[in-house]
């Protein structure tokens, strides 16, 4: 559905990062996707080869990290894992919960390549 346009936005961001760091190629792209993001990881993975073609990410691997849904109950304060259509507290059953994780659609990291003889700033994560 809209995964193709999300993928185009992803590649545009990766291209900008590559230019900013003077990279000649992108080796891998890692993204985080939660079930409530509205994006299907499999469709994203399928549209990816079409979008990366001819870009600096032409040979880059797309790694999709699937994040779980977690909520915190505002009534009892406990955290629980939840499913997309049942975001209530599993401990006390109350529906006044706050989502902690699960709606992410996040570009987490990019692994870049540069010419070996060129100095690049090195900062360890």
């Amino acid at each position: 559905m809209h995964e193709l346009s999300v993928c185009q936005a992803l590649i545009a961001q990766v291209e900008a990062v590559a230019v900013q760091h003077g990279a000649t190629a992108v080796r891998s792209i890692r993204i985080c996707v939660g079930p409530l993001s509205g994006v299907d990881p499999d469709l994203l993975q399928r549209s990816y080869p079409l979008v990366r073609a001819g870009t600096v990410a032409d040979a880059a691997v797309l790694v999709i990290e699937r994040l779980p849904i977690r909520v915190r109950c505002e009534r009892c304060g406990l955290e629980s894992e939840a499913t997309p259509n049942r975001l209530i507290c599993t401990h006390c059953g109350d529906w006044h919960t706050r989502l902690l994780s699960g709606d992410e659609m996040l570009l987490a990291s990019v692994e870049l390549e540069a010419n070996d003889n060129r100095h690049v700033p090195t900062v360890w994560a």
Binding site: Q13, R27, L107
Partner: peptide, 28 residues
């Protein structure tokens, strides 16, 4: 819920072969 993945030392801060990665943390 997801910050620990990308924070320093988190499992997304380093690639499988030990290379450090450019950390972006931006919405797609």
């Amino acid at each position: 819920g997801n910050g620990h993945l990308v924070a320093s030392g988190g499992k997304l801060s380093r690639t499988a072969d030990g290379k450090a990665a450019v950390t972006i943390l931006r919405s797609l």
